[in-house]
Design a protein around this nucleic acid. Structure first.
Lengths: 336, 336
DNA sequence: TTGAAAGCGCTAACAC
DNA sequence: GTGTTAGCGCTTTCAA
């Protein structure tokens, strides 16, 4: 069995209180005792039991993160930031993979609550009423990451999707394009779907570019195959298109692939722009021009907001993180 | 404050022992009491405290995973499998990002031990003596994932890199290539470096293909830029090369990019083969032929081995997972 | 079928 | 400076 504070106390001929004090640097002991105790700790290879500490301190130094899926670099980059901030604050992170499944999500939420994590980060997904009520009841701190709630007062950190999409379309217009299409994600996704579509449309109409139903193609999701299909469909309904804005990098890369298959040269014949700035984006042929979200920073911010809540008890303000156009090689200036 | 078992007991007019029994389905109570207690639990929204349970049961239902980096789909796929298996076994997973840094690794190891996780998965990195001794002392179960130790008796799950590289080279030979180059990873990496290089060389020599120092190019790591540089260097020192085996998919994709920049057509002029079968591999242009590791399955296996240890106390056998050639479009048959 | 009480490993209030 | 002791929220004997 592993040694406990009792074993240390006994072997050092002091009380457990003294050992505890030394462990927590609280003062109230002589240098001599400290030295003696530390020596015994060393000899015994004693490791304080964080579970017992958590029970009494009501602080587990653990936060929980819920993701709809794990295998995507979008998630990984967010996680990277979360983990970094957590580590800097002496906390660990438990990852939960919900598969966008309501039952699984509830199960995980319950698990995290039972484990008494210090807070929860809920990422990249709609916060359903059921979820919200469940955690609100426990008063556990929660932050939304890369998503937001219109119905509940939960602080979030994300990019402004409308503005970012607007900026992307504007960039394309600035490059001389007027026949611009969009491969959008899910039409009814109120976080990553609608705002990007609306931002795109607004940019076109603000710049006097006419726009019909042929300009936008809808998909089932935001993945690679959706981009392949998207491009084919778009070319079919809008043959004049010279530039395409895809609602995710994976879709943009799918579009690149489809274009290649069809013998369409990017960016010479068609320009393609993505959204996310995943690692992928610099590895594609040609490297993808895209609108970047500072994913790692967003993850960090979310975790830090959680720590703020724990320390101050105050609910922090939501944070809109800046997006940025990342210019690479997939968009070409179009001569008039 | 959240309710405790005491509150439930009081409100239901029973002892906490009875509530505990009902919570744990242990029997020894009437249906009537059970019903009454369950009702109170419902009313109070009571959530058992897993921390207190962990303290007494000496089981936290949490495992820790150490990764050198988080932002790579290799890791994500492994994590995906680990999370799945953990969840199926009612456990959570804590992720730790070591950055291949010895100090950080030790700190994380200590953290996990203090948190009394049920076991540790150590992934994709050399198990240093210091690490091993530290966890061995605590008798905490540990599994190596996508790495192995020649010095210590720690069970592992991984692919046989030598065999896999051999298979890749043989595949290229089978396609009629005789001028075959390799963009290897780190020359002194005894897990992912040397075995792949040796497997590659062995395949060539077994098939009567002469082989000099110009056939292999070494890199600093296994990343995208290493692949770009690698291809350029290889072409420089081995201009006749018609097929290239890269020691990772990211490097292979780097090679694809470099070839594109140099105006070299893949697979028409040069065939390229990768290693890992990441998601990336099917998104490249052309889609990448590669040797696949069953990453998610490997993660699952590692987690399951951990649970086996906890249940039986026996150290399970290491598992060599099967590799597989994934044929896509980046390799072309060469006519004699 | 149920309850009282000890104790998991630790912290903190109080006493000396 | 140091020790004693009462819990944190739970499980588990032992008795009744």
């Amino acid at each position: 069995m592993t040694n406990t504070i009792k074993d240390v106390a006994k072997k050092a001929n002091v009380s457990i209180a003294t050992v505890s004090r030394i462990l927590n640097d609280q003062g109230g002991y002589s240098e001599k005792t400290k030295f003696k105790v530390l020596k015994v700790i060393e000899e015994l290879g004693y490791q304080p039991n964080a579970v017992a500490r958590g029970l009494i301190n009501k602080r587990t130094h653990t936060i929980g993160v819920l993701f709809p899926k794990l295998s995507s670099s979008l998630v990984t980059d967010l996680l990277d930031g979360i983990e970094k901030a957590a580590n800097d604050n002496g906390s660990s992170v438990i990852v939960c993979h919900t598969e966008s499944n309501g039952e699984k999500t509830m199960k995980y939420l319950q698990l995290l609550i039972e484990k008494r994590v210090d807070g929860i980060i809920f990422a990249s997904e709609i916060l359903k009423e059921e979820y919200y009520q469940f955690v609100a009841k426990t008063k556990m701190p929660i932050i939304l990451l890369s998503t937001e709630s219109y119905a509940y007062p939960v602080p979030f950190v994300k990019v402004n999707d409308f503005h970012a999409a607007y900026a992307a379309a504007k960039y394309l217009i600035g490059k001389g394009h007027t026949k611009i299409g969009m491969i959008s994600g899910k039409k009814d996704d109120i976080i990553a779907g609608i705002p990007r579509i609306e931002g795109f449309k607004k940019a076109l109409s603000d710049h006097g570019i006419s726009l019909g139903s042929e300009n936008v193609v809808f998909s089932r999701g935001f993945a690679f195959p959706d981009g392949i299909e998207g491009l084919k469909k778009l070319i079919g309904q809008f043959p004049d298109v010279t530039a395409i804005f895809a609602a995710s990098d994976e879709m943009a890369i799918g579009a690149l692939s489809a274009a290649y298959q069809l013998g369409i040269k990017v960016p010479d014949e068609i320009s393609v722009m993505g959204y996310d700035n995943l690692n992928l984006a610099e590895m594609s042929i040609p490297p993808l021009t895209t609108v970047g979200q500072p994913l790692a920073k967003m993850g960090e911010a979310a975790a830090e907001m959680l720590f703020t809540i724990m320390e101050t008890g105050e609910i922090p303000e939501s944070r809109i993180m800046p997006h940025r156009i990342i210019e690479r090689m997939s968009v070409k200036e179009r001569k008039k």
